[in-house]
Amino acid sequence: MLKFLKRFYIFIIFTFLYAPIAVLIAYSFNSSKSSKWTGFTFDWYIQLFQDKQIMNSWGVTLRVAIFSAIIATIIGTMAAIGIANMKKRTRSAVLSVNNIPVTNPDIITGVSLMLLFIALRIERGEITLLLAHITFNIPYVILSVLPKLHQADNMTYEAALDLGATPFSAFWKVVFHEIKPGIVTGFILAFTLSFDDFMISNYTGGTAQTLAVTIFSMTKKKINPKIYALSSIMFLTVLILLIIVNLRQDDNNSKKERKLKKVEKNL
């Protein structure tokens, strides 16, 4: 009985989380622009690729997400290494500055950067968008890399130095491998946050519109079903990627298990 209740509860919650997504995907196949269902069509998927505004903002979103994630990962990883070697007091001061964009509401980060760009008389466009995205991405990279640095064994680094490695090659060949998972997590997090952001892009993008900002300007009038089509494609791509990664992991795990069992038998 309890088991049934639990399953039912999970079912209800996930229905709640996925119902709007299902509705959007359904409407991406609706032949009319209104809320009324008038018939099945693929037209929006075809027209989507001819829509300049949507394709432009899709390009802006992708470029900004990729470049801001790469630059934030580099600056953030370097910063994390520096921070890990700081004295306790400096470290906590730097970390509290780092936490400002994390804890501040996005709207405030957005408008504060807007004020900065206005004061510096920089025309708002793709460059300011990139600067803003790097700014809110760095803290997340630092927060993902820092714990890995604390876990990393300092002895191996020193051993490498003792064995004649230069600090750079000791870092590259030893420390880097230990913190790699943190760097990868930071990069993925940065990319996702940038890709998904609306609030900060809204205030710092100016003429350069990300997909989210374009969608927002459409919600004021009527949303074109082409956007549903694009979102459905993106959503299903991520879904399929996740399924593939998961299946491969399972496959790897079961291979490892089989190998282990073989080793055990031989023993």
Binding site: I21, L211, F216, F235, V238
Partner: peptide, 21 residues
């Protein structure tokens, strides 16, 4: 993953979808 996945669809659209619902 299922909990995080909805975030991959733009939140403006997901909210807009509630209007349709």
């Amino acid at each position: 993953l299922l909990t995080m996945l909805p975030m991959w669809m733009n939140f403006l659209l997901r909210t807009y979808s509630w209007i349709k619902i």
